[in-house]
């Protein structure tokens, strides 16, 4: 869980980095170039397979944990004061992850599938003219899409807030000197990544970028 989690964490850096190109506000030129590179470079394409494998592994591990952990306590407590001993989001990784998964399905069907269709349908005839930037701009004019994205990012925020430092603990890294640093980096990372992702739909919706 920790290993695949950290792998996905690194992916998010790339993903957020590439997408942040939209904030250059050059009508999407840089962003489209970057997106084109990401979807056509063969090294990246191979890594993409790894990414999906990692994601699926992360999901499967999560499901397995959910199954085992639910079975480990067949009778629930009638009264629980869990907030006294732990953070709600650390106990809610399954539900947060599920929300993220729903969001991902919508997200992938909107943008990833669109790109692939352009690349391969009709022998790739539309590949050159495909403009991901414009597609984003269009989608994010709809308030409900913006809302779904915002909710997705909020789920991601809590998921990462626990997941980042938790991954290190799972991998056996807990050190008096370094763990506070890891935790700080984790919080910083979570804020920056989620802020970037959150700003994208909002910026398009309010027309902050053209």
């Amino acid at each position: 869980m920790g290993l695949t989690g950290l792998f996905l964490v690194t992916f998010l850096i790339v993903h957020a980095g590439v997408n942040a190109c939209i904030f250059i506000n050059d009508g999407g030129a840089t962003f489209n170039a970057a997106a084109h590179f990401m979807s056509h470079n063969w090294v990246i394409r191979i890594m993409e397979i790894g990414l999906f494998a990692g994601l699926i592994a992360h999901i499967l591990q999560g499901l397995l944990l959910w199954k085992q952990n639910t079975a480990a306590r067949p009778t629930k407590y009638a009264m629980s004061a869990a907030n006294e001993n732990s953070k709600w989001y650390s106990r809610s990784m399954g539900i947060l992850g599920s929300l993220l998964l729903i969001f991902l399905v919508i997200h992938i069907s909107k943008f990833f599938v669109g790109t692939k269709v352009a690349m391969y349908a009709d022998g790739g005839a539309n590949d050159a003219s495909h403009n991901l930037y414009l597609e984003m701009k269009e989608e994010f004019q709809k308030w409900w899409v913006v809302l779904i994205y915002s909710l997705g990012v909020i789920s991601l925020f809590w998921h990462l807030l626990h997941g980042f430092q938790s991954a290190f603990q799972t991998l056996g890294i807990n050190h008096k000197r370094y763990t506070p640093l890891i935790k700080t980096i984790g919080v910083g990372y979570t804020f920056i990544i989620c802020l970037l992702f959150l700003l994208m739909p909002i910026a398009f919706y309010f027309g902050w970028i053209q």
């Binding site: 001993n85 732990s86 106990r91 603990q169």
Partner: peptide, 15 residues
């Protein structure tokens, strides 16, 4: 023994 897995909520340490 059918104990569950650790998901690092740290409730154990607190209690």
């Amino acid at each position: 023994e059918a104990f569950g897995n650790c998901t690092n909520t740290y409730a154990c340490e607190a209690e």
